[in-house]
């Protein structure tokens, strides 16, 4: 009884220290907003780069193919923290852009390599007969891609793309390395200010979990909608 009580008052105290005192909850809210902002822009950049690199990889043009291969090799072969720091402190060192945008570009460049492989696999999974049918009707290569192959490929790769987005959101937890205050960095900050480790870290885990759970549910509903034409 006494231990429960003392545990409870301990909990109360550390909760108060972590979130209430000095309005620390605001740090977490700002952190959530930054994580969401960076992730969203990075996803968009990642899809655009992913598409371009996938089309390079599938192209008959040798130099484009080599370019695509080098891109995926370099990105997959180096740690994302290193990439983030190189892009932030070296490549964009003298560029006047908001910090979070530079971070998004870095994550987008990283994600693009993985997205391109997903898209490439998706496009290759579409039967050659689909392309032939489109071309035999007189559509050109681009029209066949955009109206016939890619819509089907997107449906097939949707689960893999969702997975990549989730990985990306969690990956952004390293933006603290370039001085941005996301959820993870906010909890670090609170931890060193209050000497409380458990409360801020567990809170961080719960926040990420909830964000990703909500996203998973939304994407699941979207996927259901996409599958409509598969009804038998």
């Amino acid at each position: 009884m006494i231990t429960t009580l003392s545990w409870f008052s301990g909990f109360q105290e550390s909760f108060e220290k972590t979130f209430i005192r000095e309005d620390r909850y605001k740090l977490f809210i700002d952190g959530i907003l930054l994580t969401l902002k960076v992730s969203l822009l990075a996803v968009i950049i990642g899809i655009i780069i992913g598409f371009i690199i996938a089309l390079c990889n599938l192209s008959k043009h040798k130099p484009l193919k080599i370019l695509g291969k080098i891109y995926t090799d370099v990105i997959r072969g180096t740690p994302s923290v290193t990439q983030l720091m190189i892009i932030y402190f070296v490549i964009f060192a003298s560029v006047d852009l908001e910090k979070w945008i530079i971070a998004s570009i870095a994550f987008g460049i990283n994600s693009g390599a993985y997205v391109s492989e997903i898209i490439r696999a998706g496009i290759m999974s579409i039967d050659k007969g689909q392309t032939e049918a489109g071309r035999s009707l007189g559509l050109n290569g681009r029209q066949t891609m955009t109206h016939i192959v890619i819509p089907q490929a997107l449906k097939n790769i949707f689960p893999a793309l969702c997975n990549e987005f989730i990985v990306l959101i969690k990956e952004t937890a390293i933006v603290g390395y370039v001085g941005l205050m996301d959820i993870q960095k906010a909890s670090d900050f609170v931890k060193s200010a209050t000497f409380e480790a458990a409360m801020p870290l567990l809170a961080t885990a719960v926040i990420y979990f909830v964000i990703i759970k909500i996203l998973t549910i939304c994407l699941g509903l979207l996927e259901k909608k996409l599958r409509k034409s598969d009804a038998r």
């Binding site: 039967d127 007969g129 007189g138 034409s229």
Partner: peptide, 21 residues
Amino acid sequence: NRIRQKMGMVFQHFNLFPHLT
């Protein structure tokens, strides 16, 4: 593409576009 518009083709495996009505 212009030439192909003059010629219709029917395939062994139909090759209908499954994502369209």
